[in-house]
């Protein structure tokens, strides 16, 4: 971070003048002014990639909306966080997301759906992203039908935290799924079971195995019996 104390800028957000250090994102500037902007992929601990676009805002004079989590505030910028265009985009993104992904264990996104009046049934006969649950290690299960592709798990596994590089992607576009090298079971990968990915997953797509087994109605004794003592690791 550069020193910014003597380098401040003033912009207008929803009619309010806000002064922030140069380099501040519009999202942070809005928060400073007490204006909440919804986010899905954004997380303090991971690099922002501007994926979900629920944080979009309208900047006067710009051709398209700006993702406030990555767009920097600028001097004299005039920002609207709840214009017609912004609301239409947010609502439609949420509607499309609920038509594709199981959001039943994503309370924050559910709240957003309510706040923006998004109709979860807006897209009838829409293809969902459905995958079989992966239970291949003693620590956590992976249910990618609940995955919103926020990339947080991939990032904490790589340069954002762990430098383990166990996770990547299958496919592209709508048919993307988080995966391991050639879909190997996690114990056969570089995964060190640090659990950081589980910690940042916003939708419970990644869930501690114990919690999942309890939900399946297993007793703690049964769970102990079901947990292998050794992890199979591939010799490097």
């Amino acid at each position: 971070m550069e020193s910014t104390t003597n380098n401040e800028i003033t912009l207008t957000i929803d009619g309010r003048a806000v002064t922030v250090p140069a380099g501040t994102t519009i999202l942070q500037a809005a928060r400073e002014a007490g204006i909440e902007i919804p986010v899905i992929c954004y997380h303090e601990a991971t690099t922002s990639n501007g994926l979900c676009r629920t944080c979009v805002v309208e900047v006067e004079g710009a051709r398209v909306l700006a993702a406030s989590c990555v767009a920097q505030a600028a001097q004299n910028m005039v920002v609207h966080t709840r214009s017609e265009r912004v609301l239409r985009s947010r609502r439609t993104i949420l509607e499309m997301l609920s038509s594709a992904v199981d959001l039943s264990e994503a309370p924050e996104i559910q709240q957003m759906i309510e706040d923006y009046g998004a109709d979860t049934q807006r897209f009838p006969a829409a293809q969902k992203r459905e995958f079989a649950l992966l239970d291949d290690n003693p620590m956590y299960v992976r249910d990618y039908s609940k995955c919103v592709l926020c990339w947080r798990c991939v990032q904490v596994c790589a340069e954002d935290a762990q430098y383990t590089y166990a996770l990547s992607y299958n496919g592209r576009g709508f048919n993307t799924m988080i995966s391991t090298f050639f879909n190997e079971p996690l114990p056969a990968t570089t995964c060190v079971f640090c659990g950081q990915c589980v910690g940042v997953c916003p939708t419970n797509a990644l869930k501690p195995r114990r919690e999942w087994l309890l939900e399946q109605g297993k007793t703690p004794e049964e769970i102990i019996a079901l947990t292998p003592k050794e992890r199979r690791r591939r010799p490097q």
Partner: peptide, 16 residues
């Protein structure tokens, strides 16, 4: 077919 899938509007919107 060609959307990279990075951002939600296009990843989901091209399919819908």
């Amino acid at each position: 077919h060609e959307s990279c899938g990075k951002c939600y509007p296009c990843q989901l919107g091209t399919q819908r």
